[in-house]
């Protein structure tokens, strides 16, 4: 059972991936990407964990800390993630204005009609 954390990560990743490829709604796709993203965060944080370790802040009488490097990477990744999500939403809004819909198939139909 030593790997169950990683399995949960993979299940979450599968859910996110499924939303991204199987659903047509662009907002829902963005939420799916968010789940996918979080699963990667959880993977990194799980790897950083050490048995009996504590949060990586120096304190008296503690010698086992969890690995700070993945924490740093994920910390910045979260904030970058929200910035890119916002960019994605902005694009979605412009698509809505241009096509009147955010469903992938309807957008394709309109594109085909134009050709």
């Amino acid at each position: 059972m030593g790997h169950y954390n990683y399995w949960i990560v993979i299940v979450l990743m599968m859910i996110g991936f499924y939303i991204v490829i199987a659903h047509g709604n662009l907002i829902k796709k963005i939420i799916g990407l968010g789940i996918f993203q979080t699963s990667v965060f959880i993977l990194y944080i799980s790897m950083a964990n050490v048995d009996g370790g504590t949060a990586p802040i120096f304190a008296e009488g503690i010698c086992q800390y969890s690995n700070p490097l993945p924490h740093v990477l994920i910390l910045t990744a979260i904030v970058v993630g929200i910035a890119t999500t916002a960019l994605g939403l902005a694009l979605t809004l412009r698509i809505k204005e241009a096509y009147g819909t955010i469903e992938e198939e309807e957008i394709q139909e309109k594109d085909n009609l134009d050709c």
Binding site: I45, P70, H71, L75, T85, A86, L89
Partner: peptide, 27 residues
């Protein structure tokens, strides 16, 4: 619970706060 307090802090502020808001404005 995984001892990543800094990350938890960021996720709570960003994920539960700002991104929810932005999605709501978008819909």
């Amino acid at each position: 619970t995984m001892d990543a307090v800094d990350v938890a802090f960021t996720e709570a502020a960003v994920g539960a706060g700002i991104s929810t808001l932005l999605l709501l404005v978008a819909i």
